[in-house]
Computed example of a mutant assay.
Amino acid sequence: MRPEFSCILFDLDGTIVDSAPGITATLAFTFEQLGLPIPSPAELVAYVGPPILDSFRDLAGFTPEQSQQALEIYRPEYLRHGAFNATVYPGVEDVLKAIHASDVPLGLATSKPETPAKLILEHYDLVKYFDVITGASDDEVRSAKADVVEEALRRLVSIGADVTRTVMVGDRSHDVHGAAAHDVPTIFVRWGYGSPAEEVGSIAVVDSAEQLLPLLLS
């Protein structure tokens, strides 16, 4: 297949893996430890995708101090129990494998901190397909999607990749907007956690991995 793009970036949660079970269970544990009512399952799913500190602020209404306290409960519990409570979406590994075989540089650009992101890719034997793996910094200083995309592009350039025709693949509006901040278009996948309204601004929308591959490599 002929490469349609010079580099490809993938989101992780909701795009490569259905990580909601592990994340929502860890969130429920966190709220319980804080002595707070546990949000409904539907409310907890809304936390999946954006930076966790943003979700604590925007969805739970926590102050910066409360968010930090919640993070200190959430992070170790997620690494112990939640990170591997996930499944790879059907057909996605085939897409990653095909990209790798095409020699188009492939990068991960996720709002999840890099440590659990790498652990998840290693656990599901997917790390071998990626040229660079970029996530939020473990201290959450770099967590906004635009900052993650910027760092992913920098790392791709450092290995000699041509980033002039890079595309993002993601499932939430913050993927679309974060990539657009660097003039990177997004292909929106509907099997993740985003709503139809979040598709606005993407260059294409797909319902399955089989639909995605021809858009990336034609």
Rank of each mutant, 00 (worst) to 15 (best):
E93M: 09
H81P: 04
G22I: 08
A86T: 03
L213A: 05
L79R: 12
S173R: 15
I187L: 00
P41F: 07
H100F: 08
M168C: 00
P113E: 11
A42F: 01
T164C: 02
I120A: 05
T110W: 08
S202E: 01
E150A: 15
S195R: 15
F62H: 08
V88M: 13
D175T: 02
A144R: 15
D171K: 01
K145M: 02
A83H: 13
S67L: 06
I73N: 10
S111T: 15
K118S: 11
A181E: 14
E114R: 14
P76L: 04
Y89L: 01
L53C: 13
E199H: 07
L215A: 06
K118V: 11
V45G: 01
Q69D: 11
T24Y: 04
P116S: 09
D125H: 12
E65C: 05
L212P: 13
D58R: 13
R190K: 14
P50Q: 14
T87L: 07
D94A: 15
A180V: 02
S67Q: 05
S158W: 08
R142K: 13
G107K: 03
F31H: 13
Q68W: 14
R75C: 05
A152R: 11
D139T: 08
M168I: 01
V127N: 13
Y89D: 10
E72P: 08
S173H: 15
S195A: 15
D171Q: 03
S40T: 13
L79C: 10
R155D: 11
Y47C: 13
T134Y: 03
P116H: 09
G170I: 03
P21F: 06
L12R: 03
L9S: 01
D171V: 00
L36G: 10
H174G: 06
S6C: 02
L216P: 11
D175R: 02
S102T: 10
V148E: 04
S143A: 14
D138K: 09
A204C: 04
V88H: 09
C7H: 04
D139K: 07
E77Q: 15
L156H: 04
V206D: 06
I187T: 02
E114W: 05
L119H: 06
E122W: 06
A70P: 11
L156Y: 04
V149F: 09
D11A: 02
G194T: 00
F56I: 05
G91K: 05
L96D: 02
P51V: 11
V205S: 14
